[in-house]
Amino acid sequence: MTDSNPRSSAPAEDTAANRQGIKIVGFLCNWCSYGGADTAGVCRFKQPTDLRVVRIPCTGRMDPLFIAKSLIYGVDGVLVSGCHPRDCHYAVGNFYARRRMEAFKAFLPFMGIDTRRFKYTWVSASEGQQWQKVVTEFSEQIHMLGPNPGVELRSGEILKVSSGLK
């Protein structure tokens, strides 16, 4: 949904989750969580199907604005997962990421966006089971929250909220 590239829109599978229209974007580090998700798949662990995975080279590449753009345009949940602290392939990428994402998590609700729609976690390549747990829990949480209302105003609506600012 966030992608403007015409080539990347594969038709969604007809599953219960898709019928409900829940979309979760996962940004997974190439060196660990992406492998972890793969491990979970190879081991045939049952996983929810509403996660769309974007592979990133390191959580250090994770710009909080990826999350902002996703949530603003109505993606229902964003999951970021990378290497455990001190296990970063590039030594320090996830340390930077941790600060950014913590700050962003605290900032989101101020703008009126439910912070529960965003989660970040650490999963290594061998932790297939852990991945299954993380993604199942997060997916359940997003289903509980329901579709993301986004920030768009209904057409023609003029809102005038008194700011109370001095």
């Binding site: 609700p109 101020f110 703008m111 009126g112 439910d114 920030v151 809102l159 909220v161």
Partner: peptide, 23 residues
Amino acid sequence: RDVDELDAKPLEERLAFWQSELD
């Protein structure tokens, strides 16, 4: 003070506030 005042409001009101301001 202004940040805290807005933070004290419910999430929906905060969203409505920013929608109306940023609109």
